[in-house]
C-alpha cells in the first residue's frame, strides 16, 4: 500500500532522512521507533507534503501512484492521513465546520455526494462519544483552548470521520495520561481493518501495548537500522537505543 524506496530529505539544508526503505501492506500496522532527532517526525511530514521538507532522492508510491508529486490535499484525497504530534490551533474556525469541510472535500474529490449539516452531526456525534469527547468540543474553535489530550483525541476524531486508507500517527501518545491513551488507542484500533494501513511513530514502547504493531522499525540518524516483530519494541524498552546507536 505504501512503498518507500531510498528516500532522502533535508530540512533547511540539513539532511535528515538518509535513505529510507519501508513497505507497509494494507491491513498491517507498522511502528517506527527512535530517539529524538532520528527523523521520525520528518518522515511523517515528508509523506504528508509539508512545505520546507525537501525531498532530495528516492520514491514513495502510495496505492500504486507516485505520492511525492502530489499537493498535501491531493494526498489526503488519495487516502493518506497524518495525525499531528502538535495539532494546529485554528482560532475562528469552528471544529464542526472544519470537520465537515474536510469530509466534503474528500467526498467531492472522490465523486461521492456531500453531507449536509444535519447528516454530518448525526455521523459525527457517535464518533465523538466513542472517543470520550463532548459535543461541546465540536462548537469550539479547532484545538483552541484544548488540553494536550483533547487535541490528540481531536486528531483521532478527524481520522474517524475521514476514514482514510492509510494513517500516520506522529507521537500520538505524547502528553496523554494512561486513561486518555487507552481511549485514543481504542479509537485507533477501531479503525484497523484489512483495507487500511497504519504507521505509528513513537518514542516509547508504551503506546504499542495498546496498538499492537505487526512490524517494528528502529529509526536512527535518518536510517532504519533494524526491523522486527512486536517483540523488538520490548527489547528496545529494556535496552534503550544505545546498543543500536553503536551498531549504526
Amino acid at each position: 500500500m505504501l512503498k518507500i524506496e531510498g528516500l532522502t530529505a533535508s530540512v533547511e539544508g540539513k539532511e535528515v532522512l538518509k535513505g529510507i526503505d519501508l513497505e507497509v501492506p494494507a491491513g498491517e500496522v507498522h511502528a517506527i521507533m527512535g530517539p529524538n532527532g532520528s527523523g521520525k517526525s520528518t518522515l511523517g511530514y515528508v509523506l504528508a507534503g509539508r512545505e520546507g521538507y525537501e525531498v532530495t532522492g528516492g520514491t514513495v508510491t502510495f496505492r500504486g501512484e507516485d505520492l511525492l508529486g502530489k499537493e498535501p490535499e491531493e494526498r489526503a484525497i488519495a487516502g493518506l492521513f497524518l495525525a499531528f504530534q502538535y495539532p494546529v490551533e485554528l482560532p475562528g474556525v469552528g471544529n464542526a465546520n472544519f470537520l465537515r469541510q474536510a469530509l466534503n472535500s474528500v467526498r467531492r474529490a472522490r465523486g461521492e455526494p456531500e453531507v449536509d449539516a444535519m447528516q454530518f452531526l448525526k455521523l459525527v456525534r457517535a464518533k465523538v462519544k466513542a472517543l470520550g469527547m463532548s459535543d461541546e468540543m465540536l462548537k469550539r474553535y479547532v484545538n483552541v483552548g484544548f488540553s494536550g489530550g483533547e487535541k490528540k483525541r481531536n486528531e483521532i476524531l478527524q481520522m474517524a470521520v475521514l476514514e482514510p486508507a492509510f494513517c500516520i500517527l506522529d507521537e500520538t501518545d505524547s502528553g496523554l495520561d494512561i486513561d486518555a491513551l487507552r481511549i485514543v488507542a481504542d479509537g485507533v484500533n477501531a479503525l484497523r481493518s484489512p483495507e487500511r494501513g497504519m504507521l505509528v511513530i513513537t518514542h516509547y514502547q508504551r503506546l504499542l501495548d495498546y496498538i499492537v504493531p505487526d512490524r517494528v522499525h528502529v529509526l536512527l540518524n535518518g536510517r532504519i537500522v533494524r526491523s522486527g516483530g512486536p517483540d523488538l519494541a520490548l527489547e528496545l524498552e529494556e535496552k534503550g537505543y544505545g546498543e543500536f546507536q553503536e551498531a549504526a
Partner: peptide, 24 residues
C-alpha cells in the same frame, strides 16, 4: 498546511482562514 492535509483545497483553506480572521 493543517487544513490542506485534511483534503481541503488550498483556495478553500485560505478562504476559511480569511473568514476566521474576520470572525471576531
Amino acid at each position: 498546511f493543517y487544513l490542506r492535509s485534511r483534503g481541503i483545497p488550498e483556495v478553500e483553506a485560505k478562504s476559511m482562514l480569511v473568514q476566521a480572521f474576520l470572525t471576531d
